[in-house]
Amino acid sequence: MTLTQRFIDGLWTRNVATTQLLGLCPLLAVSYNVQNAVGLAVASTFVLVFSSCLISLFRKGIPENIRLPCFVLVIATFTTIAHMIMQAYAWDVYQQIALFVQIIVTNCMILGHVESVASKKDVKTSVVTAMGTALGFSLVLFVLGGIRQLLGLLTPFATQPVGSFFVIGIALAMINYLKGISPQGCTEEPQDEPDYTQQNYERFVQ
């Protein structure tokens, strides 16, 4: 797989939010306006890209049996860095999404990416893949934030953020339609498997 392919894979084909359905908790909780959505997108991107870079750099030095504690330690460090920087330079946004910045540590998108890509591939590959994945996540956050902010303005008497599950549900349905995925699963014809029964039968007869 080339780097461009990996990037597009993370951005669209295997988008964490719309295809793998990972990291939905912070995504739905925060995306009720564009400002918060962008705040979380920037923080998540920062943590994902830098953790991938570091872990990929030291992947040969991390023993197999303690890889998870090591990954979590690195991710937690970058999350704390994001948390401190936001507190210092983006106080207002931070006050809105503080809790969801802190739980980036447990975001399956990041741990999943680190485990499946960064700990196995070289730095360039894992950083490019991380960027694609993070950009895909940010894009979903941004679009969802935009739609829901608009919905909030159009909905009278709404005191709480509106429409999280409806908007993501409709968006997922549309994306699946565009990708040609039917409710039964993939529309592509399954590859014909070689028929072993005849051979087995012949062997049995012999």
Partner: peptide, 22 residues
């Protein structure tokens, strides 16, 4: 043994980094 050393080293580096940023 290598596990302990790696984790200790990693925690040390992380701690220093955060202290510096603080």
């Amino acid at each position: 043994m290598k596990a302990i050393a790696t984790l200790t080293l990693l925690a040390l580096v992380a701690g220093c980094l955060l202290a510096l940023l603080q």
